[in-house]
Each structure stands twice: as structure tokens, then as C-alpha cells.
């Protein structure tokens, strides 16, 4: 027997959400979605959630199980059971609940819309298909598996504190066009994606890769956009400068020069940015947490340089 502890919310009846428990027998071979349906159809018809294809392609049924977003149709209930044979279910995070497990996807779609999510090819249309080599197809293959389920958006740690962040799904969608050999607006795209709220606001926690039910794995796509942005010379922004300074520091000394990186990230002539650093720097100084003034290389720095050389950097 499995106990489903489900977060219930119906503002028509009461303003606050609460947890309700449902117990089901005979859950062998049932997916979590099968269980939700069993609860709805035999115990409480008012339980509300979204679903459609039940084969992990429509992206409707993402919910939080035991604190992490998953596709309900894709997981066997028995594999999700925690202590005391319980599964705790909540609506997706970073979006407002509407009722029970259904949330309002509007911010999610709004952000998808912000990345110009459509091909912008050259004006002249060929008579037949535009050629695209298998290796070029491979660059956009993973991103194009995204089913817009919102699991990554739900569990994104940046979105939790910054509404302005485009979020993993929209950025994965963006990569699918940035690296599409048929698209003509690569530079324009990476410029836009390098602005605040874009690729450089990702904190590289990798949570979205863990949550993605498909091979789309947004963080890997974000890294790919970063690479393209740097290759295209879109470097006059804090994120890119930070990445370049980071790389340079490790290459030259084998470790991070924490005095230089913040300055280089802001840009030497970005007086306002540099001024903004002052309070933090002073506080560090007073607390004795400032890095050594003279940055030293590690002993094995030659090995590090060799690695860079072999990587062709």
C-alpha cells in the first residue's frame, strides 16, 4: 500500500493550501499518473491535475514528487516511495498554483516567447529542403526533444530568487535556434541571450539537467550558447568577461585570482560596476577575508598549461 500525501488547494473553498492523504492498494506496475487517476476516479473526483498522452511526450503531467519535479506518467509509483511508503505530491514550483496540482504556466510561455522561438533563415527559400548535415542536426537534436513540461522551470534555483531569469526551458529552446545551421540570426540571438536574465545568470547548479525527463538537459544547452557567444565575440558583458577572466586566471596560475576576477568581470572602465564592488571588498577587508594581494601560482601550473594546450586553447 502506498500513501499519497497530496497538497490540496482550491481558492473557491478556502484560501490556504493543506495536505490530504490518500491510500492505494495494488499499485504494482502503476505509474504515478495511473495512481493519481485511481485516486480521482475512485476516491475524490475533485482532485485536479493535468494529463494527456501518458507516454512522456505531451509534457502535461509534471508535478513535484518528494520535492522534485517529475513527469507523473514516466515514473513507476513504487520507485518514488519514501519512508513509511509515502509519496508527497505538490504542484510545480516557480509558478502560481491554480488548483491542487495544476499551476499557471503563463510566465513559462512568456519566457519561451522572449527568445524568438522560431527559425530566422535567409530570405531566399530554396525549392527543396535546406541542406543540413547529420553532424549539424546533432547539434540541435537534444534541445529539440524538449516537451515544455516545466520540470526544469519548477526546480530552477535562479528563478526562485530572480523572476527576470529566462529559465532553463527557454534557454534550451534558444540553443535549438542558435546552433541551427539554417538560422541566420546567430549573432543577434547570442547578443540578446547575453543580456541580464540570459545565459550568464545561470548559476551552473545543474538542477535542470537532473529534472529534465528528456535528453534536452537545459544546462548543457546553456553552456553551448555560452560557447557560441564567446566564439562570436559577444564579450562585453559581465558574464562573458567573468568566464574569460576565470579561464585566463586558471591558465596562468592554476587557480583563481580573486582580486582580479571581479574587476575583470565588471570591466576595467566600468566605473559604476567597479564602484558597486567597493562595499563588498571593504567588508571582506575588515573581516580579514580578502584574498592575498600577491596571487601565487600552484606548483603544478605547467601541467595546467599543458592541459590548455592540448585542448587547443
Amino acid at each position: 500500500m502506498i500513501t499519497f500525501k497530496i497538497k490540496r488547494y482550491n481558492p473557491e473553498k478556502q484560501a490556504e493550501s493543506y495536505f490530504e492523504e490518500f491510500k492505494l492498494d495494488d499499485t504494482d506496475d502503476l505509474t504515478l499518473l495511473d495512481c493519481l487517476n485511481k485516486i480521482k476516479w475512485t476516491l475524490d473526483g475533485s482532485l485536479t491535475y493535468r494529463m494527456s498522452c501518458r507516454s512522456a511526450i505531451c509534457g502535461s503531467c509534471a508535478v513535484k514528487a518528494n520535492g522534485h519535479a517529475i513527469l507523473a506518467c514516466q515514473k513507476q509509483a513504487s520507485h518514488l516511495v519514501k519512508d513509511n511508503d509515502t509519496i508527497t505530491l505538490e504542484p510545480l514550483g516557480n509558478m502560481k498554483p491554480i488548483k491542487d496540482l495544476a499551476v499557471d504556466f503563463k510566465p513559462f510561455w512568456d519566457k519561451i516567447n522572449q527568445v524568438s522561438p522560431y527559425l530566422q533563415p535567409e530570405k531566399k527559400t530554396p525549392e527543396k529542403e535546406r541542406k543540413q548535415l547529420p553532424e549539424q542536426f546533432k547539434l540541435i537534436d537534444d534541445a529539440s526533444t524538449c516537451i515544455m513540461c516545466g520540470a526544469c522551470y519548477s526546480d530552477c534555483n535562479v528563478l526562485e530568487v530572480d523572476d527576470n531569469f529566462l529559465g532553463p526551458a527557454a534557454l534550451a529552446k534558444a540553443q535549438r535556434f542558435v546552433q541551427d545551421s539554417r538560422d541566420e540570426k546567430t549573432l543577434e540571438r547570442v547578443r540578446k541571450l547575453s543580456m541580464p536574465g540570459g545565459i550568464w545568470d545561470c548559476t551552473h547548479c545543474g538542477e535542470c539537467v537532473e529534472r529534465c525527463p528528456k535528453p534536452a538537459e537545459p544546462f548543457d544547452r546553456i553552456k553551448e550558447i555560452m560557447t557560441v557567444a564567446l566564439e562570436q565575440g559577444v564579450t562585453s558583458n559581465n558574464g562573458a568577461r567573468h568566464a574569460l577572466s576565470f579561464t585566463k586566471s586558471v591558465k596562468s596560475s592554476g587557480s583563481l585570482n580573486e582580486n582580479i576576477i571581479p574587476v575583470e568581470s565588471q570591466g576595467f572602465f566600468n566605473f559604476k560596476g567597479l564602484f558597486d564592488l567597493l562595499p563588498v571588498g571593504l567588508r571582506m577587508l575588515f573581516k580579514g577575508k580578502n584574498p592575498p594581494i600577491f596571487h601565487k601560482s600552484i606548483d603544478e601550473v605547467e601541467d595546467i598549461k599543458r592541459i590548455y594546450k592540448e585542448l587547443g586553447e
Binding site: Y118, L119, P121, T125, E129, R130, K131, Q132, L133, P134, Q136, F137, I140, D141, S144, R176, F177, D180, R182, D183
Partner: peptide, 12 residues
């Protein structure tokens, strides 16, 4: 032309 992602032959 809309942008559909198709699998490709070796010559594209």
C-alpha cells in the same frame, strides 16, 4: 522551411 528538425542523409 518552417524549421522542422528532420534526421538527415549523409549529404544533408
Amino acid at each position: 522551411h518552417f524549421g522542422c528538425v528532420f534526421s538527415r542523409t549523409p549529404d544533408g
